[in-house]
Write a protein that binds this DNA or RNA. Structure first.
Lengths: 251, 251
DNA sequence: AGAATAGTGTCTTTCAGACATTATGAG
DNA sequence: CTCATAATGTCTGAAAGACACTATTCT
């Protein structure tokens, strides 16, 4: 099979974004309304073409900024940067009816943003609970209203992104990417509960996260924004891998 | 940013394969010698263009069969099929000097094949220990001979593939993909030792794998192909996820 | 007999799960 | 005072790490 670069089939390459956040104790994804055919008027994941001289990750970061005003995390531990990583690539021949398009999906984990979507294209973008976007096959019996399905194969991509997020927070400290720069143990626990859709024991959770070296760094401050006794504030520590991992309860 | 399919930059899309196996207690990767520029004469990962009407996974499976004669696993638990999964996508603008190429890398875990590479393009393909292909940055101080670097960004791809394999056998039963259809506990342990580059306690390992439901199914047969006391033969069970996981020793 | 590998058992430590109790601030 | 949440502590059981011992075959 000779390597003949002049005889390759031409592809379009796009990046699609699965942008996840936790709002009101629910895992939500960013979706935009399509203004043109195909799938006009339907909700879809944000995304766009990779430019001629642009790296894949750079294209994903550019789309993220255009849609949300967020910037990918810089490791200064301060800014409300979002976590960005490549998710997977989707290239079924018929996934776009117009032409052959290969989409490199990326996963973004972001803290809850101040209202609509600051800095984003106001043009019909919104946060929707993943439980609503994904049919019943997501988490057992879901009986809420089923939203119209997403455009293209975006439901499949979203499902893969949610699954990646769920498994990654088990063995990494990435759950902190859903929190503001300073947060309490209880807020972090509610992130785990929202992403996994379970209830965790607050005492065991506290012991686990405060006992894992490098996971959380106390800032010295306290807050009562959740009501009740003032809680210590923490920042994400330097550790990225959790060993031993946080265990997701069975069933 | 209007979605204008007529104004997209054209890309070539390829699949590259990280095909791993365990030979003589070493983790090895399949590499082929390049017959043309660029990087003529250097070793590279096998791969090729995705065809016009071909899914990404189908392209990877086709390349795998062309190069090795292997077929991706069918879940009949019998055939010596290989495990195939998507790894990641690489698309730096300058990764191929001729044109803009996006490569969707796939990871293949295969049992040790009967000599050279049956059914493959005989044209200069060989198994090379990953330790030799990857410089020192792989596993601490490696003092063996350093092989000439791989073409393109294939060293980076190979490194990512090896890392994926190392972490996946922790929490899945995928290590059995490196074994023939029937194998002993000791042979499976040597797979873990080769992939992780560590020494495991045979007694604790035996307790762990035989005590995990669905991991191994005894076939009733025994073998003495390793010398010593005859060992029971097993086949891979239905379980795919290991819970709790197999723990990789520190350091 | 000696070497090599397989298989079982025991002790200890670590850690998750279950649950009680006290602490602190808001209304 | 009551309520809500935070924080610490105790007991128990599951499982990993370390290591001793027996079993079976080959040379």
């Amino acid at each position: 099979m000779p390597y003949d670069p002049s005889a390759f089939p031409p592809f379009a390459v796009t990046v699609d974004l699965v942008v996840l956040t936790v709002r009101k104790d629910a895992l939500c994804a960013l979706v935009v309304r399509r203004g043109e055919p195909p799938y006009q008027g339907m909700w879809a994941l944000p995304g766009g073409f990779v430019r001629d001289d642009e790296d894949l990750e750079a294209a994903a970061a550019r789309e993220l900024t255009e849609e949300t005003g967020l910037h990918p995390q810089v490791p200064d531990g301060q800014s409300a940067g979002a976590h960005l990583e490549q998710l997977a690539t989707y290239g079924a021949p018929d996934r776009d009816p117009r032409m052959r398009v290969v989409s490199v999906a990326h996963l973004v984990l972001a803290p809850d943003l101040p209202s609509p979507i600051a800095g984003g294209d106001a043009r019909g973008a919104r946060w929707a609970p993943t439980e609503t976007l994904l049919g019943g096959a997501d988490g057992a019996g879901w009986d809420g209203e089923r939203q119209a399905p997403l455009a293209f194969d975006h439901e499949r991509i979203l499902r893969d992104g949610v699954e990646r997020a769920r498994s990654k927070i088990e063995y990494s400290s990435l759950a902190t990417a859903f929190c503001p720069s300073e947060f309490t143990v209880g807020e972090l626990r509610r992130v785990y509960e929202a992403v996994w859709g379970v209830v965790l024991d607050p005492r065991n959770f506290h012991r686990k996260v405060t006992g894992t070296p490098g996971f959380l760094v106390p800032t010295g401050g306290t807050t009562t924004r959740q009501g009740g006794r003032p809680a210590q504030l923490f920042r994400a520590g330097g550790a990225t891998l959790l060993n031993p991992p946080m265990l997701r309860p069975e069933v």
